[in-house]
Amino acid sequence: MSNKVLLLFAHPSQRRSEVNLPMFRAAQQVEGVSCVDLYGEYPTFRIDVKKEQQRLLDHDVLIFQFPLYWYSTPSILKEWQDLVLEHGFAYGGKGTALRGKTFLCAVSAGAAQTAYQQDGYNHFTLRELLRPLEQTARLTGMHYLAPFALFGSRTAVEDQCLPVHIQHWTGFLRALVNNQIDIARAAQQEHIGDDWPALLLSAPAHQVG
């Protein structure tokens, strides 16, 4: 059984995007992934609530893809949550539409990974910083996976690590579509990166670091 993946992409200045736009373009080529450019679809922030709720109903895996802005999502993703995850739809007694689905963030972070730890200058890990989203997923009954992350994204192009990252990204997406990811283990990671193949259902458990 394959999964339908919904990728909601949020980047307000795509002309400047070095990492996220190439990632988005690559994702568009992956079969089974529906790609939505939120800023492109709602340039005035007038989000079509019904349409977005229908999209959620039609998919099994929800991914927010965004560059980390002030330890959070770009604003349209917050607007999307505020409007689309309504009481009676996503939460509350009758709000069961998202139960059992899978949710994760695909994040690019400008600083190096070493900055995202207790003694780094950001003081928290990426996963800790994304706690509001984790709790949102939990309240709406979705399986929360660790963020698929690229650190040091400001210099990713110069460091020539983008092609490799995009390869891992599309590989990971394909594995999600094909239902090959061990959800339980993916949920326990700090973040998911180039080591994602270790999370394949076929991979031996001890490989995960």
Partner: peptide, 28 residues
């Protein structure tokens, strides 16, 4: 009802009183 009217475009509060009852139940 408690859903969005098309002319409204802002976060809608859940019905009063639901915080203590049903939201707790949603989290397993």
């Amino acid at each position: 009802a408690d859903r969005h009217a098309d002319s409204e475009r802002s976060w809608m509060p859940p019905p009063k009183g639901c915080y203590t009852t049903e939201l707790d139940k949603t989290q397993s």
